[in-house]
Amino acid sequence: ERVRARYDYEAQNEDELSFKKGDIITVLEKDDGWWKGRNGKEGLFPSNYVEELE
Rank of each mutant, 00 (worst) to 15 (best):
residue 29 E to T: 11
residue 28 L to E: 03
residue 3 V to H: 08
residue 36 K to E: 03
residue 27 V to C: 04
residue 37 G to P: 01
residue 12 Q to P: 03
residue 39 N to Y: 12
residue 22 G to E: 03
residue 13 N to Q: 08
residue 49 Y to L: 12
residue 34 W to I: 08
residue 29 E to G: 12
residue 13 N to Y: 08
residue 53 L to S: 06
residue 50 V to T: 07
residue 20 K to Q: 08
residue 29 E to I: 13
residue 10 E to Q: 13
residue 46 P to C: 08
residue 29 E to Y: 14
residue 44 L to E: 02
residue 50 V to Q: 02
residue 30 K to E: 03
residue 47 S to I: 07
residue 23 D to K: 02
residue 51 E to L: 06
residue 54 E to D: 13
residue 16 E to Y: 07
residue 36 K to M: 09
residue 35 W to S: 05
residue 35 W to Q: 02
residue 47 S to A: 14
residue 29 E to H: 14
residue 52 E to W: 10
residue 7 Y to G: 06
residue 8 D to I: 00
residue 22 G to D: 07
residue 10 E to P: 04
residue 23 D to L: 01
residue 46 P to R: 08
residue 35 W to L: 05
residue 39 N to V: 11
residue 3 V to N: 06
residue 10 E to D: 14
residue 11 A to C: 04
residue 2 R to M: 14
residue 40 G to C: 10
residue 18 S to Y: 04
residue 4 R to H: 07
residue 39 N to C: 12
residue 39 N to K: 11
residue 40 G to Q: 10
residue 9 Y to G: 01
residue 26 T to P: 03
residue 13 N to K: 13
residue 24 I to Q: 04
residue 1 E to V: 13
residue 22 G to L: 04
residue 3 V to A: 07
residue 20 K to E: 06
residue 6 R to V: 14
residue 27 V to Q: 03
residue 31 D to F: 15
residue 15 D to N: 15
residue 52 E to D: 13
residue 46 P to T: 02
residue 9 Y to T: 01
residue 21 K to L: 07
residue 8 D to M: 02
residue 5 A to K: 02
residue 2 R to A: 11
residue 38 R to I: 13
residue 26 T to H: 10
residue 54 E to S: 14
residue 26 T to Y: 13
residue 8 D to N: 10
residue 3 V to W: 15
residue 3 V to D: 05
residue 52 E to S: 14
residue 47 S to R: 09
residue 44 L to S: 10
residue 20 K to P: 02
residue 29 E to D: 12
residue 18 S to L: 01
residue 21 K to I: 09
residue 49 Y to N: 04
residue 39 N to S: 09
residue 6 R to L: 15
residue 1 E to D: 10
residue 17 L to W: 00
residue 30 K to G: 00
residue 41 K to L: 08
residue 7 Y to A: 11
residue 40 G to A: 09
residue 28 L to P: 00
residue 49 Y to I: 06
residue 4 R to D: 06
residue 16 E to I: 01
residue 44 L to D: 04
residue 35 W to A: 03
residue 24 I to C: 08
residue 7 Y to Q: 11
residue 48 N to E: 14
residue 54 E to F: 13
residue 28 L to Q: 04
residue 32 D to G: 15
residue 14 E to V: 10
residue 43 G to V: 02
residue 53 L to C: 11
residue 5 A to V: 07
residue 12 Q to L: 09
residue 16 E to D: 04
residue 50 V to F: 05
residue 17 L to F: 03
residue 35 W to K: 00
residue 46 P to G: 02
residue 51 E to C: 08
residue 5 A to Q: 02
residue 30 K to T: 06
residue 45 F to W: 01
residue 43 G to T: 02
residue 36 K to R: 15
residue 16 E to F: 06
residue 50 V to S: 04
residue 34 W to S: 04
residue 17 L to E: 00
residue 19 F to S: 00
residue 46 P to N: 06
residue 45 F to R: 03
residue 20 K to M: 08
residue 20 K to T: 09
residue 23 D to G: 02
residue 46 P to D: 07
residue 8 D to E: 06
residue 39 N to Q: 07
residue 27 V to L: 09
residue 17 L to I: 13
residue 44 L to G: 07
residue 11 A to S: 06
residue 34 W to K: 06
residue 32 D to W: 10
residue 4 R to G: 04
residue 52 E to M: 12
residue 50 V to W: 03
residue 16 E to R: 03
residue 27 V to G: 02
residue 29 E to P: 02
residue 30 K to F: 06
residue 9 Y to H: 06
residue 40 G to L: 08
residue 29 E to A: 13
residue 7 Y to F: 12
residue 19 F to Y: 00
residue 16 E to W: 03
residue 10 E to A: 09
residue 54 E to M: 12
residue 9 Y to S: 02
residue 32 D to L: 11
residue 32 D to S: 13
residue 28 L to G: 03
residue 15 D to K: 15
residue 52 E to P: 15
residue 44 L to V: 12
residue 4 R to Q: 08
residue 5 A to P: 04
residue 52 E to N: 11
residue 23 D to C: 07
residue 27 V to S: 03
residue 53 L to D: 07
residue 1 E to I: 14
residue 42 E to S: 10
residue 6 R to N: 07
residue 34 W to A: 04
residue 54 E to K: 14
residue 32 D to V: 12
residue 43 G to S: 01
residue 29 E to R: 11
residue 41 K to V: 10
residue 47 S to N: 07
residue 7 Y to R: 14
residue 14 E to Q: 12
residue 15 D to H: 15
residue 31 D to E: 14
residue 21 K to T: 09
residue 36 K to I: 10
residue 15 D to W: 15
residue 25 I to E: 03
residue 23 D to I: 04
residue 41 K to S: 12
residue 49 Y to P: 03
residue 43 G to A: 02
residue 9 Y to N: 00
residue 29 E to F: 14
residue 38 R to N: 12
residue 10 E to S: 10
residue 40 G to R: 07
residue 50 V to P: 01
residue 16 E to A: 02
residue 39 N to M: 13
residue 34 W to L: 09
residue 42 E to W: 07
residue 17 L to V: 05
residue 20 K to S: 10
residue 23 D to H: 04
